[in-house]
Design a protein around this nucleic acid. Sequence first.
DNA 1: TTGTATGCGTTATCAT
DNA 2: ATGATAACGCATACAA
Lengths: 341, 341
Amino acid sequence: MKTGQSTIKDIAKALKVSPSTVSRALKDYPGISEETKAKVKQLAEALNYRPNAVALSLRKRRSYTLGVIIPEVVHFFFSTVISGIEEAAIANGYNVILCQTNEDYSREVKMVETMVSNQIDGLLVSHSRNTEDFNHFQTLLDNHFPIVFFDRIPKLATTANVIVDDFQGAHDATKHLISQGYRDILHLAGPLNLAISQNRRAGYQQAMKDAGIHHPDARVIECPSGTVEESVAICLEVFSQPDRPDGIFASNDVAAAGGIQALKELGIQVPGEVGVVGFSNWQFSSMIEPPMSSVMQPGFLMGEAATKKLLNFIETESYEAGTTVLKTELIPRRSSHPKKC
Amino acid sequence: MKTGQSTIKDIAKALKVSPSTVSRALKDYPGISEETKAKVKQLAEALNYRPNAVALSLRKRRSYTLGVIIPEVVHFFFSTVISGIEEAAIANGYNVILCQTNEDYSREVKMVETMVSNQIDGLLVSHSRNTEDFNHFQTLLDNHFPIVFFDRIPKLATTANVIVDDFQGAHDATKHLISQGYRDILHLAGPLNLAISQNRRAGYQQAMKDAGIHHPDARVIECPSGTVEESVAICLEVFSQPDRPDGIFASNDVAAAGGIQALKELGIQVPGEVGVVGFSNWQFSSMIEPPMSSVMQPGFLMGEAATKKLLNFIETESYEAGTTVLKTELIPRRSSHPKKC
DNA sequence: TTGTATGCGTTATCAT
DNA sequence: ATGATAACGCATACAA
């Protein structure tokens, strides 16, 4: 800001006192006469004085600002996480600055640098889909810079994380489909370099095993790009085969919605012939036809938990590796109503 | 950051030169021997030196950071705007810090203060739904602080804005419904204190008038809260009447989706008996059943345009009031297929 | 009760 | 080719 903004010096000059007196008066420090204090505060008010946060940052070597790195704000889940982060941060006197990487590794690296050079006090991270090299985080951690990872956690030895129980969520979803009479269940997996995708796949596989259902590896198909078109294409192909599956459990709601769309095009009944369950419980899940069952992830809670953890590190100047795991909840809707034989 | 982060002083001390020499060497200033320059750069690299952006801000009285104020990131439209803003900002060497107000006026005021005290160079704003008092912006404008408003623009005399042609978009949508054979069209309006809602309503009314269709005021219903439930309830009520409408044009896709849901519950055919068009073209619009026609708003372009405008103000240290209007595009889908008599 | 001096990290200005 | 100094806005140890 090039203009306007009055400073402590301005007030001091106008009142013919020293800057330090003004500083102290404004903060109700002891040893300032009520008279001076009143005069200072009044003028500050009149001049619309606001402390310069940048100068404060420099001086205190604390910015009271947290950085958040997220793949994309468009995702409903991430936007709920953000809300949780902001609530917790503001409640504790911290600001939040937000950057999206657009799932781009080099952008992620750059954003981290920018934020750190802007003297943020800590970092909350969900890394991008194609991040395989985590050195930009490791370097910071080596310098005892506080970071908490959420949802997508890095392949690093000792980090502090907050995630949901992806395995259990996927297990619940698959078990639910099985209990509704579906047995030959296709799993549309997310990008398998992500731990969340692997865990969801593992939960699915375990549930199938628990039910004594043999399923070939071909019943797991990766959807690396995460677009509707991708999953529509995959499902059109798979469900055109004579030995088609009778269920879909998808690693995310977009893939599941694509599956439903493909089944419609093929004239296959959902539910009845094929049951479908997604993961994430996006806003639109309940709006599509049929309303889609999904595994709800507590995004707001995740944001809150991660932020509290981070603030604790910052304020105690300590760091404790470990993973907080939050529960998911299956939201059954019509898309997984019982199979009709 | 309390730790690690090496500074120019560290490098100077280690190399037994003065800080100014280091500073100049790092920036390839003339009048530094190649030898010194090489030594400095090498050590900077080794120490992983990063300039302290906060100190730079203070020194240069420029932060190269833009503030963005948005009601809620969850909205698909706003998240596309954000992407446009980030692209344009980064391309010009600026960073972006983002805050959501959650449609809360007092939060908006607070956020603006925080950002300004953090010395942002300019502000991009879409104000909250219930902001009626715009003094927090006017004060800044009076101080020649650069602000560009987008989508939701304030009731202030001379501001710089970027919006879409809401009137034309609404007109197109309504005209389209009429051309498909629907005549008694219900308008689900957004919060009518917002100019966008008013303009969309006006576009609808003009299109009805152009077609010579008389429609009573009762055919415009405000949906102030913007939830699905709200519009479901309204439409259940309206479409249970004997003289029910045969079309819906909604000011946003959520309201339109609620309308479709209500019509389904009532066993009314969409399309055929009733045609529906929404506004915004959210991701889910194409996924619901039937796929929903909607008016596409160029969010990315809006973000880009607003940012370029703002950067221009900043770099030329000038301000020019005026409104940039972007075109919308009707995306026809099945929900507005022709009426069957 | 108030003022002075110093430093946070950086750079522009003036000196050497 | 390099160094010393001051300043950005603020807080604080120390002095008066």
